[in-house]
């Protein structure tokens, strides 16, 4: 594949001052404490979008927003819910992550005009976090704003004569700090696939 891509060359892929919209479908995978203590299943309920300004052919900066929900229902078990108190229940954890971030995108080989363009990205911003936990049908929610940081890498597959648009596939690691009731950070990995295209 790389051999083929090396044979295909075209003009530049991005122009300075260009505004591009990136839209991605996302599959979220919980990591670390998030996976061990709250939700172990991955979730196909996610997407993200970015509006990126092309500073140079290699560098772009902009804002990105997204949404990823996780839900897991655990079989009935007995939980210690107080001193000498036990509760038998089906436990359901639901987490929704909605970040809004300043994002940078670096495409190191942008000037070679090849179809396949690796990229790395980083973002930092705020996250509207919703954590709901239920024992049976009884529970509550912890909704709060948190910081969020994200780093990602992937591959852009350009199309069209100008190579300004394309498909992209990649992965993002999200650092989502959280500390409450013995639960820790909700870090996760997002596997993404999507499109990008210029808006002008």
């Amino acid at each position: 594949m790389l051999l083929i891509s090396n044979l295909v060359k075209a003009q530049t892929t991005s122009k300075e001052g260009e505004l591009k919209l990136h839209l991605n479908y996302q599959y979220g995978i919980p990591l670390g404490d998030f996976k061990n203590d709250m939700i172990s299943n991955g979730s196909a309920r996610g997407y993200s979008g970015s509006l990126m300004y092309q500073i140079s052919p290699k560098w772009a900066a902009g804002i990105s927003a997204g949404y990823q929900s996780f839900l897991q229902k655990y079989p009935r078990a007995v939980y210690e819910t107080g001193d000498h108190e036990a509760t038998s229940a089906v436990l359901t954890n639901s987490v929704e992550i909605t970040p809004l971030m300043a994002t940078g995108l670096f495409t190191p080989l942008a000037e070679n005009g090849k179809i396949l363009q690796p990229y790395i990205s980083a973002g930092f911003g705020v996250n509207m976090l919703s954590f709901r936990q239920y024992l049976g049908e009884f529970g509550g929610a912890d909704n709060k704003a948190t910081l969020i940081a994200q780093g990602g890498a992937g591959l852009q597959i350009t199309f069209g004569k100008a190579k300004e648009s394309g498909f992209s596939i990649g992965a993002n690691y999200q650092y989502v700090p959280y500390q409450r009731n013995g639960y820790g950070n909700m870090n996760n990995l997002g596997l993404q696939a999507g499109l990008y295209f210029p808006l002008k």
Binding site: K73, A86, T87, S88, Y134, E137
Partner: peptide, 21 residues
């Protein structure tokens, strides 16, 4: 497609049994 946690519960799953002594 965001799932409502409570809509996925059967009546049996909705029940909780609590004991204290």
């Amino acid at each position: 497609c965001s799932k409502d946690p409570l809509q996925n519960l059967t009546p049996e799953e909705s029940r909780i049994y609590t004991t204290s002594y």
